[in-house]
């Protein structure tokens, strides 16, 4: 299955190409979303559509510096889109075997090898659930 390979800081990550609509340059500025958690960058407009954008490094709690300018990987979900801010997009590679990884997270499917390199393969549904949670004021905050 073909995957989009991208960087978060210096580490490689992968998302299934099927789920990616397009990659665009990150906008100069975002409109801030009230009550949202830190991982939420805000919303941007793309050809008239309002698209929420999340800093993927923050969402994965990697403790990275936010990417300077970066790229936005647009995930195409059912009748809506979701933008993930990443450092840079590398290309498209075929990934067949995904092995387990140590860190238990619904957002991560596992590790895979692309040539000599190791990439972390992400789980679209898990990401979506985590993003949704980061936009709602519940449950962790203020309680």
């Amino acid at each position: 299955m073909r995957h989009v390979i991208f960087f978060l800081d210096r580490d490689r990550y992968a998302l299934p190409l099927d789920a990616v609509r397009e990659v665009v340059n990150a906008p100069e500025s975002y409109s801030r979303v009230p009550h949202a958690k830190d991982a939420v960058k805000g919303v941007m407009t793309l050809r008239g559509r309002v698209v929420p954008v999340v800093d993927l490094g923050r969402l994965l709690a990697l403790g990275l510096q936010p990417p300077g300018k970066g790229k936005v990987v647009l995930l195409e979900l059912v009748r809506r889109e979701l933008g993930l801010l990443v450092t840079e997009v590398e290309g498209i590679e075929s990934i067949e075997k995904v092995g387990p990884q140590g860190r238990a997270s619904r957002m991560v499917r596992g590790l895979a090898r692309v040539g000599p390199l190791t990439v972390t393969v992400l789980d679209v549904e898990g990401l979506d659930a985590a993003v949704t949670a980061s936009f709602s004021s519940e449950p962790e905050r203020n309680r």
């Binding site: 979303v33 309002v50 929420p52 009748r79 809506r80 949704t132 980061s134 936009f135 709602s136 004021s137």
Partner: peptide, 8 residues
């Protein structure tokens, strides 16, 4: 749309 509809 989701997730924005989650924002109070």
């Amino acid at each position: 749309t989701r997730p924005l509809d989650q924002v109070p």
